[in-house]
Design a protein around this nucleic acid. Sequence first.
DNA 1: TAGCAACTTGAATCTACCG
DNA 2: CCGGTAGATTCAAGTTGCT
Lengths: 304, 304
Amino acid sequence: MRGGVVAGDCLDVLRSMPAERVDLIVTSPPYADQRASTYGGVTPDDYVAWFLPRAEQFARVLKPTGSLVINIKEKVVDGERHTYVLELILAMKKQGWLWTEEYVWHKRNCFPGKWPNRFRDAWERCLHFTREKRFKMNQDAVMVPMGDWATTRLRTLGANDVVRHDSRVGNAFGKNIANWQGRDRAYPTNVLHLATECGNKGHSAAFPHALPRWFIELFTDPGDTVLDPFAGSGTTLAAALELGRNAIGIELAPAYVTRCRQTLATAHEAAQALARAAAVTEQELISPRRGTATAKVSKDSVPL
Amino acid sequence: MRGGVVAGDCLDVLRSMPAERVDLIVTSPPYADQRASTYGGVTPDDYVAWFLPRAEQFARVLKPTGSLVINIKEKVVDGERHTYVLELILAMKKQGWLWTEEYVWHKRNCFPGKWPNRFRDAWERCLHFTREKRFKMNQDAVMVPMGDWATTRLRTLGANDVVRHDSRVGNAFGKNIANWQGRDRAYPTNVLHLATECGNKGHSAAFPHALPRWFIELFTDPGDTVLDPFAGSGTTLAAALELGRNAIGIELAPAYVTRCRQTLATAHEAAQALARAAAVTEQELISPRRGTATAKVSKDSVPL
DNA sequence: TAGCAACTTGAATCTACCG
DNA sequence: CCGGTAGATTCAAGTTGCT
């Protein structure tokens, strides 16, 4: 697996990339009027026109069986929801994209606040576009555990306690299939329950690690190539490397490019450590010692 | 409180209703290609044109401070999500509506099934439209129990601590604590977690009782008037009656009109029984007996 | 080691105020 | 009257540090 970050506007960078090279694009583009310093402050009214030529390049570099996942949410303008996301969907369909599905990311810890005419906004859209009706989708890779353990836990704990996310890199080895031998697993739904990652001072990710991770597992195989044209701090790229995928990032702001490369280096180390940890875990499964290791693994392996 | 059901197409029925009479419209309109027998099979492509003249009547009978809540979800057509809901939102804005918010109803137990290119659909839109930027909203009526954070904190915090911190000038900590004194409930978000009612509803567009109930508590006062122009089996009307609101239903299919009236009669009885129970509970609070009455009441008062 | 307590941080949104 | 910005509001999750 390899990863790299290119500095520049993805519109320009992608034009020099060969066609049909990417298996999955997962990105959280700058929202309207956000990140104004880096993207010149795209206003809501101009958003679709700004996005469309870039989407055209996404379609070109994406394999016919590939997927495009866009994490986005319209902001409130003058007391009501702006319609630029709706218009973007319609425009992208005109451009030839298939609007295959809309996943909902439920942000369990959303931004606080109180206003006279609305509540806190606790969800964002994850728009799933494809080029063809038949595309790569590994549903088994993201199955969630069910059965005795899960049932008991679900019964005794509140809904809030059931959902955990793997904010840390280290617990990904919980994905080990062997841990779920003899247990039933169920397919997830199109609603993802994840908390935003906070607390990392000045290093907060736009979206939680587990979000791109889930889509990468779902829509790619190991060895495939993942692209994030608005790489930001590199959350998507890190997740891709950890999962043994190739990662390509494009980022306009120099500060983010630097940070992105740091993230990639860390992710590469983590991935190697992960491989070692997985080997150890496997050994313990053969001749288990006393301890809570198994329980811990089970607990952490329910990211969704 | 009074309730009634009118047989007919809401387009015709509403034309004979006086203007600005209704405080809230909560409805789950027939989805495209659903209930084809009753509404003549509106196809997805014709949906907006079919809906708009009815929305025009909604605007006419609604008070300026009123709200319109539409529970809807686009169906999958030919492998992708159809865009008629997006187009409907854009068209209703052109008609003069304000698209104030989009709530998400997360269906905890969604319809089972497996498809090659998507997961089970576990969410629906609850589109909130208003005529004016200022509208009636009783946020306190739908507050939910708070998370552990404040609970544990307030429990262990003595009165001395509050006073001590509060006395310091410019101490944000003390200020915040003062605000949270005695607060055990928080405002909800725009994501509603409700299980679908698995009872044998013959009605295809039935939504859970708690969904209209939540919006009725949020957007109306007791004595206000709630309208459901696609009354179906009468879920919205029953919730309105139970909450002491007037309920007006319109339903085209004769079979559903009959059923709707049965629902209303039952709801009326239930509301009266509820009133008696509340009186009993009040008495018990003064001199409580052993039993579960009190617990039951508090449990039922937290539908979400 | 586990548990509790203190503290920090959000892709927010509205109101008030100033030029 | 428009356009921008500073202040107030608010809560779940994570992190650090102490017992």
